[in-house]
Write a protein that binds this DNA or RNA. Structure first.
Lengths: 352, 352
DNA sequence: AGCATGATTGTAATCGATTACACGTGTAAC
DNA sequence: GTTACACGTGTAATCGATTACAATCATGCT
């Protein structure tokens, strides 16, 4: 079953069939109708490989992520795919598994399949790999990876806004001893979140205590370990802001393990709002970073780059927003806390 | 950059280059070496579309799942992909989103891309769609979907084993009033799990109490709601077996909300062992259903079907196994329970 | 009628591989 | 010294679309 058989049945040339399939406007209405009937009757569908080979366009977008088992990504992938399918395109997803050599394989796959665009949401891609993509004229869009480039698009996240909201929320509940568990400092976006936190503290007029800032790894175990460290302090934080939800989940586990309660003894805020966060008990207060917004912007960046070749890259900013659930509460009276150093509870602090 | 340029540089024909790329054994060693050097020097890689068009084989496997945001699937996808990449193949993943009409699109995609095989882990595919795949000579493997078919392979799950282990564990802890929260009864595998539970009870000599069996939906909210229902009973279950981990997580949330503790007041066992289960607090006791085993078997079913065309479908069985963590404990004294109907606490029961 | 014009449609080259078949060449058997 | 055969390589058809260009057709205008 191929285009020739359709052409024969519809009494037209293959060119006309092809034009009809591709919605060219230069096919007379009733010819097109005849072709469509033939397609229907023969149950024909075009061979994707032949189309791609003939036209040079694959109708495929690539999406490079770190790791599909990281719960942040599936939703992103799904939104991106859904939007793509809606526009008659498809998506191949490739995981770098956080490794640079796997990243090269990912890029290779994209090149071999002649994708029409690549959305990159990982920091493992070395400049020379990006160059390979660019030099093949493939539109790129970076998601939260802030790579500057005139011909590439960027979807940026306004971390400051989200983190400001989180800190303000905690401050309004009376917290001032706020701990922060960061992501791995090797990850640019983790560094940005940390900076945003420091800036938020400053803005809120809270002086920085270095011992309250601990590095995690954006995974549950990292959150757990970082929290262990924080719980060793003589003067415990009354609230924790975590660089992502998994970290927050780990921290909460650790807090419980020490016989403390969330949010009565310690408030916790996460970041991302992964699906499970709302379903935990207690439901996690967190800063939502909408994956569907990100995916949408990314798709449209590529789509318009395809429509208008040679156009400059666009820039989009997505705004995270605080979602208050049940892991944050009014700051408790210090005496209710374990391990609290009563000597440090000066009147001045109590007054605040 | 194409195969001709490589041929020119290596002073051979395109046929020889092609043979070298495909590892044909009928190329003299030093000719092959010369070709390889040319490929290297020119930074050449073959055009996937042309290869697929010319050979009829796409080196692509399709994987059809219900929903990538269901945490059961990402690991499966990853394992399947990893194995495929290891064998020089690639994978396209397609979500049915639990809808039959989306399923048709998925099958269409597979057909259009001329995949060399499809692994199906969803029950949305209607027989006529399967027929379309089969009639195109595409090898199929069903994962936990138990479709009989002479020419298709199956990866089956020995639910009885896993559920027996779970029930035995609970019984050994002194539980006999064991509740079960099933998946949606429309889902074959959910029905199988339920049957396995009933059979396990029988084997353990525990008489069935219908009110302890409630239907969920394999999602967190379903687990929560089902548990609410169970907590209305005058005689509470002391242990709950859930049809999957999400259900268990929902149930635990509900239990906590009622001021009861897990496992001191109620023991809970999940099923699947999704990644987050180990990281919750308390870590969930569950029955592990290894996604990597399933993916491996599935891949090899397709791979060998490709190697030996015309061979009959194979059948694999994967064995789930109980993973004891912290949501199960020795059955408590009934008087410690809320809402317990003291009248029913007969000496006979206490004696067991 | 003759012609310009724009709208449709057809012809055939093209994309970049794979592979059936043909063609040399060297070696062993007779 | 043929003949046969295996091995290595090249020639060219083929896969199934797309699309530049050519051809045809209908229409309105002079």
């Amino acid at each position: 079953m191929n285009i020739q058989e359709v052409a024969r049945r519809a009494q037209v040339s293959t060119a006309t069939v092809s034009r009809t399939i591709n919605g060219s406007d230069k096919v007379k209405a009733n010819t097109a109708e005849r072709v469509r009937r033939a397609i229907e009757a023969l149950n024909y569908f075009p061979n994707t490989n032949a189309r791609a080979l003939g036209s040079g366009r694959s109708r495929l977008y690539g999406l490079i992520i770190s790791d599909i088992t990281n719960p942040f990504f599936p939703e992103l992938v799904k939104s991106f795919e859904d939007t793509a399918v809606l526009h008659g395109l498809e998506v191949i997803v490739s995981n770098t598994s956080y490794k640079a050599d796997r990243a090269e394989l990912c890029v290779q796959r994209m090149l071999e399949r002649k994708v029409d665009g690549v959305a990159i949401m990982t920091s493992e891609l070395e400049p020379q790999l990006l160059e390979r993509l660019k030099s093949n004229g493939i539109p790129l869009v970076f998601l939260d990876t802030g790579t500057v480039g005139e011909d590439t698009s960027n979807v940026l996240v306004n971390y400051s806004k989200g983190i400001d909201e989180a800190v303000d929320h905690l401050v309004s509940l009376g917290h001032e001893r706020i701990g922060f568990i960061s992501g791995p400092m090797t990850l640019p976006s983790a560094r940005t979140r940390r900076e945003a936190f420091l800036e938020s503290l400053r803005r809120a007029g809270i002086s920085l205590r270095k011992e309250l800032i601990v590095e995690g790894n954006h995974r549950i175990d990292g959150g757990r370990m970082a929290m262990e460290e924080l719980l060793q302090l003589t003067s415990l934080p009354t609230a924790i802001l975590a660089s992502n939800d998994l970290t927050a989940i780990g921290a909460i586990g650790s807090i419980h393990q020490h016989g403390l309660r969330v949010p009565q003894d310690v408030s916790v805020i996460g970041f991302d709002d992964i699906e499970i966060s709302a379903a935990l008990y207690p439901p996690l207060t967190t800063v939502r970073l909408s994956r569907s917004h990100i995916a949408d912007r990314a798709f449209h960046a590529l789509f318009s780059a395809n429509r208008e070749p040679g156009s400059r890259g666009a820039e989009y900013i997505v705004q995270p927003e605080l979602v208050v659930r049940d892991t944050t509460a009014v700051r408790i009276k210090p005496r209710a806390l374990h391990r609290i150093d009563k000597g440090k509870m000066s009147a001045k602090k109590q007054a605040r």
